[in-house]
Simulated assay, not measured.
Amino acid sequence: MLFDAERHHYQVLNIGWKEQRRIYGVIIHVEIKDKKIWIQRDGTEIGITNELIAAGIPKKNIVLGFLAPYKREFTDFAVG
């Protein structure tokens, strides 16, 4: 896990080896910008976005940063 509380960047990484092959990948990348939670990457089965909503975070405070900006307006989430 990587947490940069000063710049409000949070990541969960998969790092290691599987047999002779190197594994490195970002599973979750979340930022807090302009009082909104930006989901930049969500590689989980459950979905970090669903977890945030279940925790009481309103959709208007969540930006799906992995979507192109023009597509965000067609969701129930913040556009940015």
Score class of each variant (00 low, 15 high):
80 G>D: 15
78 A>Y: 01
57 I>H: 09
53 I>P: 06
69 P>E: 02
30 V>W: 01
5 A>R: 15
76 D>R: 07
38 W>H: 13
4 D>E: 02
10 Y>H: 11
43 G>C: 01
48 I>S: 11
32 I>G: 04
70 Y>N: 07
17 W>P: 03
43 G>R: 02
61 N>S: 11
10 Y>S: 09
53 I>S: 03
30 V>F: 00
49 T>A: 13
65 G>M: 07
46 I>V: 10
23 I>W: 00
40 Q>Y: 04
5 A>Q: 14
68 A>H: 13
46 I>C: 01
72 R>K: 08
7 R>K: 15
9 H>I: 07
23 I>N: 04
30 V>Q: 00
26 V>E: 07
70 Y>V: 02
60 K>L: 09
10 Y>C: 08
25 G>N: 03
48 I>T: 13
55 A>V: 06
19 E>W: 11
3 F>R: 13
17 W>V: 10
60 K>N: 11
3 F>C: 09
48 I>F: 13
24 Y>E: 14
68 A>G: 08
31 E>Q: 06
73 E>I: 10
56 G>M: 01
56 G>Y: 01
9 H>N: 05
1 M>K: 06
1 M>G: 06
56 G>F: 00
79 V>L: 00
1 M>L: 04
33 K>Y: 15
50 N>P: 03
22 R>S: 12
70 Y>F: 08
80 G>V: 13
33 K>T: 14
27 I>D: 10
36 K>L: 14
69 P>S: 00
